[in-house]
């Protein structure tokens, strides 16, 4: 049987490189979704990793760090927050 491809659609799937079914500890929305202030997941709402290995939506974490009570600490372990990396 000979098949001639006349047309094709490319389809791609993306997801953040985090363990399956994990949610942001601050907003409790999955990492593959976006933080509550954003409308679309992806480049506009990226994730941030701390030196302590904890991950959050970047917007969620920045808002926490701006809160007086945060004292610049990770919301999980209360160690001083240091950025390991941000994915854009």
């Amino acid at each position: 049987m000979k098949v001639k491809v006349k047309r094709w659609h490319g389809v791609a799937v993306w997801r953040w490189d985090v363990p399956n079914e994990e949610v942001c500890g601050i907003c409790r929305v999955p990492f593959d979704g976006c933080c509550p202030t954003c409308k679309t997941p992806g480049d506009d709402c990226s994730l941030i990793w701390g030196e302590c290995t904890h991950v959050f939506h970047m917007h969620c974490l920045l808002r926490w760090l701006q809160t007086e009570g945060s004292r610049g600490q990770c919301p999980m372990d209360r160690r001083t927050w240091g950025i390991k990396f941000i994915i854009y």
Binding site: G25, G69, P75
Partner: peptide, 8 residues
Amino acid sequence: EDWKPVLN
């Protein structure tokens, strides 16, 4: 003082 947003 010990509140953090990962609590519920």
